[in-house]
């Protein structure tokens, strides 16, 4: 098995004049729990649809589980290796859990009834109720059950825990984590719940306006991305001229700086600027990093 589950290079998608994805570069290591983040309309769902083969990119290259994304993607053999849980659960309204399980069993080559039973018991899902009568949370739980039954190598989840209460959400994430550890399955999770992501994921890619703003191991992002407050009368051009400073916001008596590639040296350089009387460095949570780009 390759050590990379997803590799995208310069992936581009246009809808008429509108550029939905612009030269997206992304690497998702095999077995990782990776997050795909970004504000609404950033292109997350478009990117996911390119990965699942629901739409075709206009340019760039990529591989998913070793298969090139391009004309004819995804080949039938790949479809069953990718599990996809969509944001809006498109389960057939008139079918029961039992009927849906029967349907999936028929089309999934690696279907495993033992896994399905474990999920059904854990979530206490009713077998004979039609989807229409299920709560949003139950639909989410059923969707995960159906996908995990097929033993995917790559699991793509788009806002999977919407509609779940905190207790059920925690349980859902625990079982997802336990099974991904057990099976070595790669997980790509898109979510707006950044606190949840920060716990679960080891890597994150933040999309803004169809472009990758930052991408990497979350611990590295947190070490790199800082906010720095400086006090003193300094010109904007001077602070922006310091290497690593990517944005400056005027504050009373100084500036709030957004810096990337933070190092000891950066603080010293800022302290050394003529007119600077104080420097304070803030670590950021993933949410704060997100907000600094979004």
């Amino acid at each position: 098995m390759s050590d990379v589950a997803i590799r995208l290079a310069g992936l581009t998608k246009r809808y008429g004049e509108k550029v939905a994805l612009s030269a997206v570069e992304m690497v998702v290591p095999t077995g990782s729990f990776s997050a795909l983040l970004g504000p609404n309309g950033a292109g997350k769902t478009t990117l996911i649809r390119c990965l699942t083969g629901m739409i075709r990119p206009d340019g760039g290259a990529g591989t998913v589980l070793g298969v090139p994304v391009g004309p004819g993607y995804p080949p039938t053999a790949l479809k069953s290796r990718i599990g996809y849980v969509a944001q809006t659960q498109a389960l057939p309204e008139r079918m029961t859990a039992q009927e849906l399980i029967g349907l999936c069993r028929g089309v999934q080559p690696r279907w495993n009834d033992a896994i399905v039973k474990r999920y059904l018991d854990l979530f206490a899902l009713p077998m004979k109720q039609v989807v229409r009568q299920m709560s949003g949370g139950m639909k989410s739980q059923l969707a995960l059950t159906l996908v995990m039954g097929g033993q995917p190598e790559l699991l793509i989840l788009d806002e999977p825990t919407m509609g779940l209460d905190p207790k059920n959400r925690h349980q859902y994430l625990q079982v997802l984590l336990a099974d991904s550890i057990e099976t070595g399955c790669t997980v790509l999770l898109s979510s707006h719940d950044l606190h949840q992501i920060e716990r679960l994921a080891d890597r994150a890619t933040i999309l803004v306006g169809g472009r990758v703003a930052v991408s990497g191991a979350i611990d590295d992002l947190k070490a790199d991305e800082k906010r720095v407050r400086i006090a003193g009368a300094v010109e904007e051009a001077v602070v922006l001229g310091v290497e690593g400073v990517r944005r400056a916001v005027k504050e009373p008596g100084g500036w709030l700086l957004f810096v990337s590639g933070a190092s000891e040296g950066l603080v010293e350089r800022l302290r050394g600027l003529p007119g600077v009387t104080g420097v304070q460095v803030f670590s950021q949570s993933l949410e704060e990093i997100f907000l600094s780009y979004a």
Partner: peptide, 9 residues
């Protein structure tokens, strides 16, 4: 799993 935190962490 208990804490719902990434195992690498």
């Amino acid at each position: 799993v208990e804490l719902a935190v990434n195992p690498n962490t």
